[in-house]
Amino acid sequence: MKARDKEEYLSEYEILKKKGKSFFPYAIVKDSVMFVLVAAVLILMSIVMGAEQGPKADPTTTTYVPRPEWYFFFLFELLKVIKPPALVPLATIGIPTICMILLILLPFYDRNPERIPWKRPVASISGILVIVAMGYLTYMGASAGSPNEIELETAPEFEQGKQVVAQAGCLACHNIGENGAEGGLGPNLTEIGAMLPREAIKRSVAIGPGIMPSYRGLGEKKLNEVADYLASLD
């Protein structure tokens, strides 16, 4: 902003402020009405929805759904958009960091003195696009199906492993057949047996490569069942 623009803004502002009303009581009244509204919504929400408690945390368990709070869905979904493993750090840290920097520096690169939304279309349209994108990603995250079911038929000897995979919530990030996260965080496992040998599959499940958690807690027996089942998928 040029010195001239600044001066003009300040003098205009001074006039508008002189013509304004006193914060007390005029603005305070509006604020208080809003407080009452917010408090009412909050009280209603906690009465209607309460505060559930899930089953106790258990590192050795096989049933969990690793989902963040809804307001992190957009970040979580962003990970699913970017597939190649080499680019995962870009999605997890890179893009959010770049967005934060862009956001924090906004007043320093947007030097247009204009403030009326429809007279600065680039800023306004970018803002709307960001809101739409975040809304869409949040919706995607919210509508992801239950990750505890696998419909794909399998031979009886692998049934045990299939149950473990279903209950362990692998499908929160992976797909098997028709089930699982559409375009999930992790690779599609429908034909994993054709791509990786059994031992490599077992090692991955135990270690949890990249952002995947380690499943060593399942224990040797269940790990073997999982590996047998996944190796049978081809």
Partner: peptide
Amino acid sequence: PFDQRSFWATIVANNI
């Protein structure tokens, strides 16, 4: 709250 959901979600967040 240290229930399943919060425990595992935090592990993933940490891996991220």
